[in-house]
């Protein structure tokens, strides 16, 4: 077992459209990122859904997970809301592509 396994919680706003869950889940699967928990719910804006994703970062940097996630056109923004984390990863515009 690796010793540098770290838990992070990401709050991800996505377009509320068919297939968006598959896009996010598929990305984690094919890039060998680990999802610990995944929660999807509505927001005040019916065109946007919120995903709360528990990520176990192992062998990848959190930055790489966020950067790959942000390449999905359906992903609008990503915040690191890990309770202890001080920094907030605002994706405008550095992680946008």
């Amino acid at each position: 077992m690796t010793t540098n396994r770290r838990q992070h919680t990401l709050e991800v706003l996505v377009e509320n459209e068919p297939g968006v869950l598959a896009r996010v889940a598929g990305l984690f699967s094919r890039r060998a990122f680990n999802i610990e928990t995944l929660n999807v719910g509505p927001t005040e804006d019916s065109s946007i859904s919120k995903m709360i994703i528990g990520v176990a970062v192992e062998g990848h940097s959190l930055e790489q997970v966020i950067a790959q996630l942000d390449k999905l056109v359906s992903v609008i923004s990503i915040k690191d809301v890990t309770p202890k984390a001080q920094e907030v990863h605002d994706t405008q515009p550095d992680y946008q592509n």
Partner: peptide
């Protein structure tokens, strides 16, 4: 307009 696509 694509909220999730804005290449730098």
């Amino acid at each position: 307009k694509l909220a999730g696509y804005n290449p730098k």
